[in-house]
Amino acid sequence: MENKLIVSTSPHMRSGDTTQSIMLDVIIALMPAAMASIIIFGYRSFILIMTCVLSCVLSEYVCRRVMKRDNTISDLSSIVTGVLLAMNLPVSISPLIAAFGGVIAIVVVKQMFGGIGQNFVNPALTARIILMNSFPAKMTHWTAPFAYSSAADAVTTATPLGILAEGGAQTASYMDLFLGNCAGCLGETSALAILLGGIYLVARRVISPTIPCVYLGTAVVLSFVMGRDPLFDLLSGGLMLGAVFMATDYTTSPIHFKGRVVFAIGCGVLTMLIRQFGSLAEGVSYSIVIMNILVPLIERATMPLAFGKEKKKK
């Protein structure tokens, strides 16, 4: 033959999905929540989101350059981390602190462990936890919805969960919580926007519904058992955001079905334990990060059985 043929192992076809296309889908899925945050909290949301994204992308670029490795910013994963980080911040936070969070997420949590696919905890959540411990007051300074003034102290309030933890009377109705008419982090207030994103991700087969459904289900059941208001627990705080966007992070969740169920149950149990007994009003970030750390153990304990193999009898 006149020209040389390519010889490679089978299969000779690919599905066409790439890491980049998956990350793009996640970014699209985050858009309703991002839009909602801009509607609820005004232009400062937009500035925060842009700051976090820029900080993450820049950190990734510089980090890869310094480490003399192939640049991976084109896989879009650092943009996802940036948007997710912004979704976990209160609107009144200074953009400088937000940018610092982005650097921690990318440099410390992601790149120091080897980059995409190697981090053992969720970068955005870990950055949030570090910010929470470094700037506790600023990270729990909540602005009332639709108070567009940049004078941050003008209309401060507490989150619905915060009010509950302090034994106050609830002001937010279920509809307020569902639509996002309450105080909280950028992305967590509107359950509707998160659900839209979640449905998109499931429809595009980017995530399987296993983790969100089991996580939310466990939380609702426990809430009922503890004598709390399950619907309130479901709609308030970061539970929805965590279950749909954080716990489903590929790298830090188990790769097979059984493991995912165990992981999600663990997340649900820890979240509700912290909400009920912890001194914090909210426990989603801690529970997901703790379960992230347990993933290798969960995977080992729940390995699927190969076709045609019988269960070991003990």
Binding site: D17, T19, I22, Y250, T251, S253, P254, I255, A306
Partner: peptide, 20 residues
């Protein structure tokens, strides 16, 4: 490119193996 642990190979395996 780097494995992102998406688990698609595990879901796809008809023999129920963990290719990654």
């Amino acid at each position: 490119t780097a494995c992102i642990r998406c688990g698609r190979c595990v879901q796809a395996c008809p023999m129920n193996l963990v290719p990654t």
